[in-house]
C-alpha cells in the first residue's frame, strides 16, 4: 500500500452550470496533517462534499486507500473510514448528545468496541458525559464542536476531515480544540485533513498545505514554506 491515503485527481464539480472545482489535484499522506486554506466561496466545502460523495464529480477521480471511490455511494465511503467533523452543522440539535453519538457511530456494529471508544471520548471530553441526555442544540459552541469531533472519531477513522473547526468559536476554545487535534494526531497517528480559514492555527499543526481559490489549487507546499510565502499575505485570504 502506498503512503498516500487519499488522493484527488483532476477533480471538477459544478452546481448546475456554475463550476465549483476545476481540476483539483491533491494528496494526503498517511499519518500527516494536511490543511486546505482558502477564502469563503473558494470551494472548500464542495471539496469535502465531493470527497464524501455528496457532490457528484463531473470529471476526475477520488482514490481512497488505493481504491477508486469516485462512484461509490457516500455511506460506503464513510464506513470504509472517511469521517467528517463539521462543527457548524455536525450535530442534530433536536437530539440528545447520546443519540448524536450513536448516529455518529452508525457503522460501528460491535457494542464492546463502541463502549470502549465512547470511554476514550469521555476521557478527552468529560463534559460530554455529563450532558448525555441533553439536547445537542442546548450545548455551547465549544461543546458542540467537541461533540461533532467525537461523533467522527468514535468510528474506525482512517482519515478525519475537519470542516472549519474554529468557525464561530472564542479564541480560547479554538486553542483547546487545536490542542486536542494535535494530541489526537500524536496519539492515534490519525491522518487529518483540515479545512480552515484560520490560517495561523491551521498551519501551526499541519505538515502540508494547499491553498484553494476560485475552485483551483493555487499553491501547495510544506507548511514551513507556506507560512512565509506571499500568497497568504494577499488581502483576500
Amino acid at each position: 500500500m502506498s503512503n498516500i491515503i487519499l488522493q484527488v485527481e483532476n477533480l471538477s464539480t459544478s452546481y448546475g452550470r456554475i463550476p465549483m472545482l476545476m481540476g483539483v489535484n491533491m494528496s494526503v499522506h498517511k499519518g500527516s496533517v494536511c490543511t486546505v486554506l482558502g477564502p469563503n466561496g473558494a470551494g472548500k466545502s464542495t471539496l469535502v462534499k465531493a470527497i464524501l460523495g455528496l457532490v457528484r464529480a463531473d470529471k476526475g477521480k477520488i482514490i481512497f486507500m488505493d481504491q477508486d471511490v469516485t462512484h461509490v455511494p457516500s455511506h460506503k465511503r464513510i464506513s470504509s473510514g472517511i469521517h467528517v467533523a463539521s462543527p457548524a452543522t455536525g450535530t442534530f440539535p433536536k437530539m440528545t448528545v447520546e443519540t448524536n453519538l450513536r448516529l455518529g457511530a452508525y457503522n460501528v456494529d460491535d457494542k464492546n468496541i463502541l463502549e470502549q471508544r465512547l470511554e476514550e471520548v469521555f476521557h478527552s471530553f468529560p463534559i460530554l458525559k455529563n450532558r448525555l441526555q441533553q439536547k445537542a442544540g442546548t450545548l455551547s459552541g465549544g461543546e458542540r464542536t467537541m461533540l461533532s469531533i467525537s461523533k467522527a472519531i468514535i468510528n474506525d477513522t482512517k482519515i478525519l476531515i475537519l470542516d472549519e473547526p474554529s468557525l464561530g468559536l472564542a479564541p480560547i476554545i479554538v486553542e483547546e480544540v487545536f490542542r486536542f487535534l494535535k494530541k489526537l494526531h500524536d496519539e492515534r497517528e490519525l491522518t487529518i485533513m483540515l479545512v480552515e480559514q484560520n490560517i495561523n492555527k491551521a498551519l501551526s499543526i499541519s505538515n502540508f498545505g494547499y491553498v484553494l481559490q476560485k475552485g483551483q489549487i493555487i499553491y501547495e507546499g510544506d507548511t514551513s514554506v507556506l507560512q512565509d510565502s506571499d500568497i497568504l499575505k494577499n488581502p483576500v485570504m
Binding site: 464524501l52 460523495g53 455528496l54 455511494p73 457516500s74 455511506h75 464513510i78 464506513s79 469521517h83 467528517v84 463539521s86 452543522t89 455536525g90 450535530t91 442534530f92 440539535p93 433536536k94 437530539m95 443519540t99 450513536r102 448516529l103 455518529g104 452508525y106 457503522n107 461523533k151 468510528n155
Partner: peptide, 25 residues
Amino acid sequence: TKMGLSMQAISQNKELAYMNGINVR
C-alpha cells in the same frame, strides 16, 4: 431502533445524515 433514529436524522438534516454514514436511500 437504529433505523428509526436514522429516519429522524434524515428528517432533521439530510446532508448530515449522509455525513454520518447513514444509508439514506
